[in-house]
């Protein structure tokens, strides 16, 4: 998977309540959720995000509530990938399970500034920041998690396990 886009940058401890406030959780419609993504932290986000943009943040991204609506809202808003110094653990699982690409890269997250142009190649394992003229290596996911990604998400894998097909 390869992405190219401009950086939209946030700080540390971005919680899932600001990613998608609970007052909008009476629906799980993806486009409805996307309309309110980041609203309480940055009301301009939805107006300036372009398809393919990369969200870059600090430590503990996605902390707080387990709402899967948070990675869903980010993905549906057009963000191609989230790069952070660290991720909160439930958000990390949820992102993998729903197929929102995430990358832990403290160096890249540190250097990147708003509107920098990034290229991310998940297969080859690097990020390029064109404005900074720097390349960063991405640590590959553990094999176990790669299998979930290759299977097309957790449910695709589960379906295979829970429903034996005739050829099994």
């Amino acid at each position: 998977m390869k992405f190219e886009g401009k950086v939209i940058k946030y700080g540390d401890n971005v919680d899932t309540d600001v990613i998608i406030p609970a007052r909008y959780l009476n629906t799980s419609d993806h486009s409805e959720l996307a309309k309110h993504c980041m609203e309480d932290l940055d009301a301009t986000f939805v107006t300036r995000v372009n398809k393919g943009d990369v969200m870059v943040a600090g430590y503990n991204f996605g902390c707080g509530s387990s709402r899967e609506h948070a990675p869903i809202a980010i993905k549906a808003s057009g963000i191609s990938c989230v790069i952070a110094k660290t991720f909160a653990r439930i958000f990390y699982r949820n992102a993998i399970n729903i197929g929102l690409p995430i990358v832990e890269s403290p160096e890249c997250a540190n250097d990147a500034e708003e509107n920098d142009r990034l290229e991310i190649d998940l297969e080859k394992g690097f990020i390029i920041n064109y404005n900074k003229g720097k390349t960063y290596r991405i640590e590959p996911f553990p094999e176990f998690i790669q299998k979930i990604i290759v299977a097309g998400g957790l449910m695709a894998r589960t379906k295979k396990e829970a429903l034996p097909t005739e050829t099994d």
Partner: peptide, 26 residues
């Protein structure tokens, strides 16, 4: 539990943790 405060039951000497909805479905 698909709720982050599922960790509450640790008070009983259980292992309990929050996950998302897809983990719950699986």
């Amino acid at each position: 539990g698909a709720d982050s405060h599922t960790c509450t039951y640790g008070a009983l000497g259980a292992f309990s943790t929050g996950t998302g909805s897809t983990d719950m479905a699986a």
